[in-house]
Simulated assay, not measured.
Amino acid sequence: MFFDKDRIRDSLTLDDIKKILINELGSNEPNKDNQGNLIFQTVCHAGEKHKLYYYEDSKQFHCYTDCGDSFDIFELVIRAKKHQGETFSFPKAVKYVARLTGKTFGTGFPSNQQNNEIITDWEWINKFEKKEKINIELPEYDERLLDVLLPYPHINWIEEGISYETQKKFEIGYYMREERIAIVHRDIKGRFIGLRGRATRQEDIDNGKKYMPVTINGKLLNHPTMMNFFGIDKTKEAIKRLKKAAIFEAEKSVLKCEDFYGENNFSVACCGSNVSTFQRDILLSLGVEEVFICLDKFRDKKPDETGEEYEEKIIDYQEKLLNIARMFSPYVRSYIIWDFEGLLDFKDSPVDKGKEVLEELMRNKIEVNTLGVE
């Protein structure tokens, strides 16, 4: 049987999540924040602090310490098991969660059909209706907190080709106390929902703290990144007009696209390497007809990896990109940007080598439909 990962993930209850994390992955009983979200120990990297948040609405976790990343239950299992000395592929993680929770929904032909759901044509069509409303609003921070930032674009980013005008438009500043480039995050309505800092100290970068939420006056200005796209408040009009959206990993890519394309900039950043169904629905609500998955090029081979192990990692990464594209493909035309010709360095964003290279990559894009790759 082929397990239906989306149906399994979406059907998980809070009790299921607690069962997996406490009984299997080593977390203690979770805490709760003031909105009722569960906060587990950071089993994703074998940490002990309760900084791993689970957001039931989006079925996503977010680690607010070393990982600084968002992921679903399957990716969490893969990460946690790695630190327990076990290697889990994505299919193995799906099967693992299915067996633990009894959510064995599948796409194979079961031998006994008496208790199976019957899906009518109308129900199938309704399943893929475009989303029109986003009902969940993240908490809004006081705009006055931004007054402590130096309102000056950073020279490092200007040297990378991000203009003064673009940095000013996207409210890029500098937080002297933490020596970080300050990046204001706003939701689709323009509400101030978070502040991320890009480290300028090499020590922070080497310690895995390249991008972190900023703390001002003792208040951590964080937000679940998988419930918003950076830049969506500035680029939504182009996205609606052109009916296209390009999803990059980091905020800088959106800024570079702004300098490339100005009012035709239809890019957003997911601020990680995962895209949630909540983020998908944000773009669908804008009436997009085409989505381009533009995540960073995969890393170089590590010294301690065999060629076979490295190839397996590349295949895992390709499958990850396919899974993101498949989230969109029932609704819109979905594409993956992949560097077939070696135009990028390892871990580069598709924008990092300039506009011409980006457009060459776009010409060689891969289309992913509901059945597979075209």
Rank of each mutant, 00 (worst) to 15 (best):
S276F: 00
K169F: 05
K133W: 08
N228A: 08
R201K: 15
E178F: 13
E24F: 12
L149M: 10
F71G: 03
Y55L: 01
R333P: 00
I366E: 04
I17L: 07
G231F: 12
T166Y: 03
I158P: 01
R9S: 11
F3S: 02
D206V: 06
N112I: 09
W338T: 03
I136C: 01
V357A: 05
K302F: 14
P213R: 06
I155C: 10
L14V: 09
P224K: 05
C294Q: 04
S273K: 13
N116R: 12
S267V: 03
R180E: 07
N156K: 14
M176L: 13
H83F: 14
P151I: 01
I162Y: 10
V351P: 03
V97H: 01
D352G: 02
Y55P: 00
A250D: 14
N34I: 08
R280P: 03
R280I: 02
S70F: 05
N156L: 13
S267T: 12
D57L: 13
E289V: 10
E311Q: 14
E117F: 14
I20D: 02
V373I: 15
E319C: 08
L149R: 06
R186V: 08
D348L: 08
K189Y: 09
I20G: 02
E251I: 04
S349I: 01
C271R: 05
I282R: 00
K209H: 08
K297M: 11
S27G: 09
R186D: 07
I118E: 13
I119T: 11
F40Q: 02
K219I: 15
E179R: 14
G47T: 12
K59V: 01
N156Q: 14
R9V: 07
F40E: 10
Q318H: 12
Q318S: 11
R99K: 12
L21N: 11
I158W: 04
G26W: 09
M327C: 08
A46N: 15
I134Y: 00
